[in-house]
């Protein structure tokens, strides 16, 4: 028989104020105006969304800002059903890996515009390679949630 010993409950709560820097401030300012900005590397020509300060391959500054298309292709996705402490949204919700047209990298965001109670239909709509488009939140806070989610393009 295992003997039970006491435990101590210890919750760590810490406050933060993260500096966004020029690049992310400008990127989020764009979202507030329903614009998605990317930055382009003058050396290799790659375009990055969210906007980056420097090219990860070339290590050079990225000064070339572009207004990027709000439509793109879904590379992959998953439906989250499990809860954990501190989740931003309550399950079920879906995450997608999206590459916007004219860019050279993917990023993660929420997927919406789909009825999750009908998984067969959902899978049809969100096959890898499906076309998606940004849907905007009514209320803007100049953060990533200004984009509410990406929805399948009506074909």
């Amino acid at each position: 028989m295992t003997k039970e010993y006491g435990t101590i409950v210890n919750t760590v709560v810490l406050p933060y104020r993260w500096a966004l820097g020029q690049t992310w401030t400008r990127f989020f300012d764009g979202l507030k105006e329903e614009k998605i900005y990317g930055t382009r590397c003058g050396t290799c020509g790659k375009v990055f969304v969210p906007a980056k300060t420097f090219c990860p391959d070339c290590y050079s500054d990225l000064d070339d800002w572009m207004d990027v298309s709000q439509e793109g292709t879904l590379k992959s996705w998953t439906l989250v059903r499990k809860s954990h402490f501190g989740q931003v949204r309550q399950p079920p919700y879906a995450l997608g890996l999206i590459r916007l047209d004219g860019t050279d990298c993917e990023f993660i965001h929420f997927l919406g515009g789909v009825d999750w109670s009908d998984m067969q239909n959902a899978r049809e709509k969100l096959k890898a390679g499906a076309r998606v488009k940004a849907a905007w939140s009514k209320e803007k806070h100049a953060d990533i949630h200004d984009i509410s989610c990406f929805e399948p393009l009506k074909s």
Partner: peptide, 22 residues
Amino acid sequence: PKEKPREMKAQVTVPYEMAMGR
């Protein structure tokens, strides 16, 4: 950019339950 770079305020809460041992 129209304003100087901003900060994002947040709070991270992480719960623990630690075993005391014998």
